[in-house]
Write a protein that binds this DNA or RNA. Structure first.
Lengths: 351, 351
DNA sequence: CTGAAAGCGCTTACAG
DNA sequence: CTGAAAGCGCTTACAG
């Protein structure tokens, strides 16, 4: 299989040779018969530039195939054009959860429309966190979209010290600085689902909650309790170890042992629900006949379970949109406020 | 909810105010009592610098909290430190497929270890493709990891014109330039699965292939045919419209109509298999009793289906590792060659 | 509306 | 081993 390796494999010059030396602003200016400053002006808004100059410059740019050197620009403007999408999680969520994938995709797309790029950064280890911090301090990114589920995340606190705008996806982790955030109404959605389950005849309602130190875990559980009040049986609530299919299966298995008579279960995320459904099937419980199952997220997997999952829909693309908007406003120096987006019940067959 | 908005929300100066003016190399040099050049040298390798100077510089850096301005560095070195991870797909795959998420996560992590960052870019529309090209030409990225499944992808060809190193994940799309690639052995894996199915007693084997213009679709189907030869019944092969659960369900439904007597089916991806399993269940066929089902990928969802999927494992982290390695070598000016990684059969319950 | 000029913060031959 | 200096390619007051 042929490849594009340079002609001088080992020489140091080979690497440099690859660096194209394209036309510079100076070249464009010369051809257009104007000064470098004027070229720069048409590139940046083009106001206060005569139509004639503008035309000449654009023509010269076309002719030379000019492309702006962002590094040079960033050096003087101190703006990079890049936004860091930081995943402050121990590990692996990207692997499994379609919700995160969707969020990432939407953010990338929206940022692109705004002429900005998305830098994906992991922050699960201290080294990775340091890197994020250096990027923020080094002006390599103009802002950060922080996806952090865990309370007490050390990164949130460290980030405020950098003066780089930050917006948190979901909710600002407890125990940290009051960062602006945008997320779905977890608690309200959980309330709706719980009420729905009750309305469908559930008498002995159980819950597979998310990990206790995550915002989703805390808020969705709170919504569940809001509705059940004193009727909420502690024995009928178990927290999953993580947001994974396997953790869902295990949590459900435990629930089946501690509350064998349950007739409905609210599971804090669709991915967990996939596992819960498996445990239920393995135990010979029919869904929804024997037990009603409600999920949360309405991720792409929700329609694919057996039976298809009744769940709470997070307006993912809207979350992404507001996330980007809030961050960009903040970067623009405007005052911003957090936003909580409404969720909706999606009825399918599991409940 | 309080936030970190600046004191002068509307003023133009507000945005600029946020730009921290940290200590520069000059400051460090002054404090260390050396020249700027020396500071630069310790930052870049530190060879040819006396131990004393080195110590002084490091101390001064610590003392001032110095952090290198990458833009300034990039301006002179013409290297950005960033790698573009380009998703050249019409849409949505990121949404659903855990394989892609895993690949992305691994690449991000590995690149980070190499002190490089990953820029996520979509290239599903002409505008998005232009952006990728501009980034390449503008020296904004040092290389690109191209995830392109479709043959005749216009981006591949355009990218070679930029002189920026590119490595394709999977296989270089047919009809494009011969780019170096790294991927799993699709054809070989498909062969193994088909043989396995035959060994398990399959007599009327069918296949849900991937979309016909994708490398996975072509190669895995070829492997299937390698084994079956003339026995491969054209009627028993249907290509899914996309790599999604829904497309898998539909393709399987169609297969059930055209080849109602099938007793085994090889499905070109786990995600498609999830849909196929649903269609089978809906049709009252038991798996594996009535029909054996084999998948491909061994994505995180494979163990979560009902029944758990027997599949072909792609060495995802290894693919990511070689992808990064090949790209970095190419950036370093070395000669590189494509790599095809071996797959393995993972037996679970569906076959 | 436009030019000349300073400056952004680094790297890298070139001498020594 | 190390300094002085040029230069990377842009933006942006400052004058006019």
């Amino acid at each position: 299989m042929p490849d594009d390796a340079p002609a001088h494999p080992k020489s140091r010059g080979a690497a440099r040779r690859a660096q194209r030396r394209g036309p510079t602003m100076e070249d464009v200016a010369t051809i257009a018969g104007v000064s470098r400053g004027t070229v720069s002006r048409v590139l940046n808004g083009a106001h206060h530039v005569s139509a004639a100059s503008q035309k000449a410059v654009r023509e010269a740019m076309r002719q030379t195939g000019y492309v702006l050197n962002e590094n040079a620009r960033s050096l003087v403007t101190k703006r990079s054009g890049a936004i860091a999408f930081v995943l402050s999680e121990p590990q692996d969520r990207l692997f499994e959860d379609p919700v995160l994938g969707g969020l990432l995709r939407h953010c990338t797309q929206l940022l692109g429309v705004h002429g900005r790029s998305l830098m994906l950064m992991l922050a699960g280890t201290p080294e990775e966190r340091d890197r994020v911090l250096e990027f923020a301090r080094g002006g390599h990114v103009d802002g950060v979209l922080l996806v952090s589920m865990h309370d007490g995340d050390p990164l949130a606190a460290a980030l405020v010290g950098t003066n780089v705008p930050v917006v948190v996806c979901g909710r600002a982790p407890a125990g940290g600085p009051p960062l602006p955030y945008v997320g779905a109404d977890d608690r309200g959605g959980a309330r709706v689902m719980t009420q729905y389950l009750v309305g469908r005849g559930a008498r002995r309602l159980a819950m597979v909650a998310g990990p206790g130190d995550t915002t989703g875990g805390v808020e969705r559980l709170a919504g569940f309790k809001d509705v059940l009040g004193r009727r909420a049986n502690k024995r009928a609530i178990v927290s999953a170890a993580a947001y994974s299919i396997e953790a869902g299966r295990e949590a459900m298995g435990q629930l089946l042992r501690t509350s064998p008579d349950l007739d409905a279960v609210f599971v804090a995320s669709d991915l967990l629900a996939v596992g819960a459904l498996q445990a239920l099937a393995a135990a010979g419980r029919r869904v929804p006949e024997d037990v009603l199952v409600g999920g949360f997220d309405d991720s792409t997997i929700a329609a694919a379970t057996t039976p298809p999952l009744t769940t709470i829909r997070q307006p993912l693309s809207q979350v992404a949109g507001e996330l980007v908007e809030v961050l960009l406003e903040q970067i623009g120096g405007r005052t911003v406020s957090s936003r909580v987006l409404p969720t909706t019940l999606v009825r399918r067959e599991s409940a």
